[in-house]
Simulated scan of single mutants.
Amino acid sequence: MPSCIFCDIINGKADARIIFEDDLVCCFLDKFPINPGHVLVVPKRHAAEFTDVDPESLQAVILAAQQAAGAIESTFKTDGITVMQNNGAFKDVEHYHMHIVPRYRGDGFGWTEPETDVSSIDFDSLEIKIREAMAEWPIVS
């Protein structure tokens, strides 16, 4: 496996401003934040993609993200929180991670949606395709 900056942080080989960690997750400040207080929540077991994360780690990630969001909201008196993660070509580190971003009205960060002609979308076909694909992905409880 090539070098992974998040694995290096988890193993103490790279510096980070760690705000929380336990046996399954490590939470630290993003070095290139969207807003001050932007936190990354990273499973300690390396997994490149969201769909590769083991269920125990994924549960720990979402619970730590919830805890971080609450702490950020109360500490910084935010107008809101954005919780997001990117997959595939849209992520910048090959180790699954979740972003917890403090948000403020007018902060300039946003989600730009393309103009889509929804009348041309075959929702019936999409529903069937996704329903069939989901049947192949077992839900772990």
Rank of each mutant, 00 (worst) to 15 (best):
Ser74Leu: 04
Gln59Tyr: 01
Glu73Trp: 00
Glu94Pro: 01
Phe76Lys: 01
Cys7Thr: 11
Asn86Thr: 10
Gln85Met: 14
Ile81Ala: 07
Glu115Asp: 15
Ile19Lys: 04
Ala65Asn: 02
Ala14Ile: 08
Asp15Leu: 12
His46Pro: 03
Arg131Tyr: 12
Phe76Ala: 04
Phe90Trp: 05
Pro36Met: 04
Ile10His: 05
Val53Asn: 07
Asp107Tyr: 06
Glu49Pro: 02
Ile139Ala: 09
Phe109Trp: 09
Lys77Gln: 13
Phe20Ile: 06
Ala135Ser: 10
Gly37Val: 08
Trp111Gln: 12
Pro33Arg: 00
Val53Gly: 04
Val118Tyr: 12
Ile130Trp: 05
His99Gln: 10
Val118Ser: 02
Ser141Asp: 09
Ala68Glu: 11
Gly110Cys: 08
Val140Met: 08
Pro43Arg: 03
Ile9Tyr: 07
Arg103Phe: 13
Arg45Gly: 06
Pro55Asp: 13
Tyr96Asp: 00
Lys13Leu: 13
Ile34Trp: 07
Pro138Arg: 04
Lys77Tyr: 00
Pro36Leu: 11
Asp122Met: 00
Asn11Ser: 15
Ile18Ser: 07
Lys44Glu: 06
Ala65Tyr: 05
Phe90Ile: 03
Val61Gly: 04
Asn35Gly: 04
Ile100Phe: 04
Ala14Gln: 12
Glu127His: 13
Thr116Arg: 14
Ala64Asp: 15
Pro114Ser: 15
Lys44Gln: 10
Phe32Thr: 15
His99Phe: 03
Arg17Leu: 08
Ile34Arg: 15
Asp54Leu: 09
Phe32Ser: 11
Asp54Glu: 14
His38Gly: 06
Gly37Ala: 01
Phe50Cys: 03
Cys7His: 10
His38Arg: 10
Val41Arg: 01
Ile128Arg: 15
Gly110Arg: 03
Ile34Pro: 00
Gly37Glu: 09
Val41Gly: 03
Asp15Pro: 14
Gly108Asp: 07
Gly88Thr: 05
Phe123Gln: 11
Cys7Met: 10
Asp23Thr: 04
Asn35Val: 11
Glu127Gly: 10
Pro33Thr: 08
Ile5Trp: 01
Ile130His: 05
Ile81Cys: 06
His46Gly: 03
Phe20Val: 02
Asp30Ser: 13
Gly110Ala: 09
Thr116Leu: 13
Gln67Trp: 03
Cys4Met: 06
Ile139Gly: 06
Tyr104Thr: 00
His97Leu: 03
Asp23Lys: 15
Met134Trp: 08
Glu132Asp: 15
Ala48Asp: 08
Asp107Cys: 04
Ala68His: 06
Asp22Tyr: 02
Phe123Ala: 13
Phe28Asn: 01
Asn35Glu: 12
Ser125Lys: 15
Arg105Cys: 04
Glu132Arg: 15
Ser120Leu: 14
Ile19Pro: 07
Asp54Gln: 09
Ala60Leu: 06
Ile130Gln: 06
Gly108Arg: 07
Ala48Lys: 15
Glu56Lys: 09
Thr51Phe: 15
Ile9Phe: 00
Phe20Lys: 11
Arg103Cys: 09
Ser141Lys: 12
Thr75Glu: 14
